[in-house]
Design a protein around this nucleic acid. Sequence first.
RNA 1: GCCGAAGUGGCGGAAUGGUAGACGCGCCGGUCUCAAAAACCGGUGGGGGCAACCCCGUAUCGGUUCGACUCCGAUCUUCGGCACCA
Length: 825
Amino acid sequence: MTTPFRQIELRYDPTAIDRKWQERWAADGLYRVPDDDPRPKWFEMTMYPYPSGDLHIGHWYAMAPSDCHARFRRMQGYNVLHPIGFDAFGLPAENAAISRGIHPHTWTMSNIENMRRQLKSMGAIYDWEREIICCLPEYYRWNQWLFLQLYRAGLAYRAKAPVVWCPSCQTVLANEQVVDGSCERCHTAITRRDLEQWFFRITKYADQLLDFTGLLDWPEKILTMQQNWIGRSEGAEIGFDISSHRLDVKEIRTFTTRIDTIFGVTFMVLAPEHPLVPRLTARSQHTAVAEYIAQARRTSEIERQSTDKEKTGVFLGSYAVNRLNGEQVPIFIGDYVLMSYGTGAVMGVPAHDVRDFDFARKYNLPIRQVIAPAAWDGKELAEAFVGDGFMTASARYDGMTNQEGKRAIAEDIEKKGWGSRTVSYRIRDWLISRQRYWGTPIPMIYCDACGIVPVLESALPVLLPPDAEFKPTGESPLAAHQGFVNTTCPQCGAPARRETDTMDTFVDSSWYMFRYTSPHYDQGPFDPALMQQWMPVDQYTGGAEHAVMHLLYSRFFTKALRDLGLVDFGEPFLRLYNQGIILGEDHEKMSKSRGNVVNPDLVVGQLGADATRCFMMFIGPWDQGGPWSDVGINGVARWLNRVWGVMEHDPNHLDAGAANSQTVRATQRLLHQTIRKCYQDLDRFKFNTTIAALMELTNHLSKVWAEASVDAATWRDCTRNFLLMLAPLAPHIAEEMWERAGHPYSIHQQPFPKWDEETAAEDTITLVVQVNGKVRDRIEVPAGISSGQAQELALASLKVQSYTQGKAVRQAVYVPGKLVNVVVG
RNA sequence: GCCGAAGUGGCGGAAUGGUAGACGCGCCGGUCUCAAAAACCGGUGGGGGCAACCCCGUAUCGGUUCGACUCCGAUCUUCGGCACCA
């Protein structure tokens, strides 16, 4: 079924005009970005798309406004780099191979071809000679090269760790890729596995990633999300003595942010996976503990993470000693304690922690209050007291505030060697191994004699063999490819095996901005001089869903590259702007199942690229997203159609004698006000009000044409500047009308118009007169009127007098250029 | 549960302390037409009035102010993020 989007008769042929200018611009290389341009540089990037095969209207929503903004910067006099590429590695390509027998490379490249055509139909200023495709060896060899640099710097390491496993994708996931206990891609509930995997040591940069001082303008929301994701918390690590068990390990280490509550410890809880559990389990408790662990393993991640789940646990039958008071406390295991945070063991302080309180209630453990508010009546607690107060039942610390107690106890345990102040983070190292084919091979070799050996840089790239079996087995398809696996050790020359896992695709996007500066450079990931010239990115735009993955990884990569001496700055993106999400006409998220998906090709085919671009920007504030509307886009198309009509008028028909000097003045004033408004609004991504201002100017020009009340020179000045303002929004018809008006090619090499404050200034204003804050009259007055004159005129108004009669005027407030408020009482 | 954003006509939205509803859609009326569509012109928050005009109105309640969509406090709703992080 074809939806008839077009409800209007256009005066022009949008398809022909789109094609004409796209071909001409391409042939002339109008948007080729020179590296040797004396103008100041502006690097404006939008997040590159995954080549799924078809451009979605959401891509238009992300890309048309960002192109408009980049074009505006170009007209402001910058040498603008606004590149595009494809995030071409990843699971969908491999799934297509499995389900339909198409090779991932074939599938991806043909998708790219189609999407490239669709992207070109937008008429953006992309310099296609700088296009990046991550799945090509000329790109991914530098993933491998960078991996080797990180490995040498100790930032890439291999470790056995309990990792998140997606049973459907048959691969591990990074923590960031888990949403509500499920795989973010296929929504299958995740499980855990112990596997040897490659990690990037992002945790080493946790504190630096929390420092946002190098950023010029990022949404507060993204900074908060990164902050929460990194989850820094200051506290102390302290050991509880288990030397009586006669093990080689003499203590259980715990992390706490509340060392001030240590005298309130009445039990300990270890994570079920804690390595000391088997050794601390008493014979009598063996069965119960084993059962609990088995059950914890069976519990799904979703259930286990649910906060309202009852706290459960099992006593191990053994005790640890709280060194501060010498007390023995029972040791439990409980699945509310996570092995992945802190030390995997917590000290139970039921009086001052809500979770410990629940646990103690359930297992009848003592609850001892050690922090009390100033007016404490000594009554038993009904719930955990987590606020500040005074230390009590805490030996020599009694009477201190708990903040003082925190410091004093920390200092004392450090002196005694029982523990120390530490910082704990929520963020984990970035797991980059994937058991899949369609990704960058990790350039490592396993030799029986030499161990783990990096591939020589001269041997890069490690190419993906074209002929792998794509069945999902839980192991990388490369593992079954003998020709790939079998190699020789770069150190000793003996037969050796290649690493068969591939890299997370977020590795590709962590440094692609650097590659755009020299996309064909073959001596390194980027040409140092060109990188220096263009980086960092001045403006980045994209969806907020990348807040804790791509955006954090990119910041980490840049800092790591800096420490490797490859770059001399630490932040890749100076400014960030997040566009919202375009919804279906029913105000719901667009999805095939809802049947509310809009096909941009169809719209562009009927109304043209410019109407589509402008509608994307007219829906509302770009960061808020908004609903698609078939009739709405027709409204925008109608406007462009009217613009066409206005521009077709021949100003030679205007008779200078008939012009009305007041209308001429008003028209010039409106033109300059519009230039000012457009300039300021485009600068801040306020496209919707930019278009509204241009619509008002269009309406005004229609009117004065009908009246023939302006002279030809004024008309030409208005239409010329109008087209220049329209150029970044609707580049094709602006260029066409520009040519028809006889201006020299190309409008897209012209500067943005400048406004003159004096011309834009109003001569008269409508003075609003209020009585007690209610509007009672409006008077036309000269703009420069004095406060005294304004008040005099206001009080002289008959309408005002009917409200002030017989009452005392207490006060009159004059707001220059706006209003007078008369207060009577 | 915690954190954040938002709530304005029939609809998308504008106005960030000073004329609420710019601009667009829709709707109503008109011009053109045999007729329709398109195009063009005019009107359009609600209520009252023949009219001049008047009253009400930005989720709800309260506060600050000469003046509040805008600032402050509480509540409700919607959306987004985080969620046993010791």
